[in-house]
């Protein structure tokens, strides 16, 4: 299939990719001498929009929650400490769940479990998709064709559906979940890496390196990777959101992370009955998911805007 949803999504985020000013008419200013990268990062940060600051703050907050969960949470994640569905109180700020476990503690542990699994999955997916994408772009020829067709076929089946099918066969466990989602998601990483690497591979400096007898590994690591890092970093953010949402959806459907592990997706499902009584508690874990993905998306959006050279 020639449609590439990923490219479209990137396009949707970056807006116009054509430069707004004709380069020939912009006077190249004599550039100042090299400045420290920390300094540059700080300056970029100071100029960042409010949404980006919000996103960064959210990410930092979640990271702290995930790392220090045992110190912050008042109770253990699977400890039954009260009656089922107790209302919000001083003792249980967000009440208790269907088994009488403290909602707040489970929310805090949920950060650790859900985010941890999503991060691991995304990392694995980048290792698979990124390396294969780079290889395909540099070697080209049959390797590229073969990998490309394999990815086309994996992508011809909707990801969530494919994941559901595979989980029904191998059974739902955390390693299975990570492996399945990572493999399925690596197809998109592959396509993006290959596409952006292709743009670099055709440049003359790569040819110059080949003509000077540089080896494949060196070209990959030194000539190509540094030049495709910005889009890959942005893609990491986007893929993390996507993986995070997929895992949450699977957990919500009861096929992802299994009890008694505290996990936001499952927590929504377990407490969903409360909605019928007008209680917002089940929305809390869903809100936790939403807040993080919104935050990451805001940061990615700013980063893409920054690195795509789009100024208006």
């Amino acid at each position: 299939m020639s449609i590439n949803a990923d490219e479209f999504e990137m396009l949707a985020r970056e807006g116009v990719t054509t430069p707004t000013v004709e380069p020939s008419d912009v006077v190249t200013q004599p550039l100042p001498m090299r400045r420290g990268s920390v300094d540059a990062a700080w300056r970029a940060l100071k100029a960042a929009p409010l949404t980006a600051w919000f996103g960064l703050f959210v990410i930092a907050f979640y990271a702290a929650l995930a790392i220090f969960a045992p110190l912050i949470a008042p109770h253990a994640q699977s400890a039954v400490v009260g009656n089922q569905y107790e209302p919000w109180s001083a003792e249980f700020p967000f009440g208790t769940d269907q088994l009488g476990r403290d909602m707040l503690s489970r929310l805090i542990y949920g950060a650790r479990n859900t985010i941890g699994i999503a991060v691991m999955t995304t990392l694995l997916s980048f290792c698979i998709g990124g390396v294969l994408g780079l290889l395909a772009s540099i070697i080209g020829g049959w390797t590229d064709q073969l990998l490309g067709r394999a990815v086309d076929i994996l992508m011809a089946i909707p990801q969530l559906i494919f994941a559901l099918m595979l989980l029904s066969i191998v059974g739902s466990s955390i390693p299975n979940l990570i492996l399945i989602i990572a493999v399925l998601d690596s197809t998109r990483v592959f396509r993006l890496t290959r596409a952006v690497a292709m743009n670099v591979v055709v440049l003359d400096f790569v040819e110059a390196a080949r003509l000077q007898g540089e080896k494949l590994g060196w070209i990959m690591a030194r000539e190509i990777l540094p030049n495709i890092l910005p889009p890959l970093v942005a893609e990491f953010g986007l893929r993390f959101c996507f993986v995070f949402l997929t895992i949450s959806a699977l957990s919500f459907l009861g096929l992802g992370i299994q009890p008694p592990t505290a996990d936001w997706g499952s927590m929504v499902r377990e407490n969903a009955t409360l909605i019928a009584y007008g209680d917002v508690t089940p929305l809390l874990p869903a809100g936790c998911i939403a807040l993080l993905t919104v935050g990451v998306n805001f940061v990615v959006d700013w980063f893409l805007h920054k690195t795509s050279g789009l100024k208006e």
Partner: peptide
């Protein structure tokens, strides 16, 4: 729209239901 594409479907669904 950026917010809306970021949140899980079930979040929107339960908010509407609530």
């Amino acid at each position: 729209t950026l917010t809306s594409i970021s949140v899980p479907e079930f979040f929107i669904a339960y908010i509407l239901m609530l």
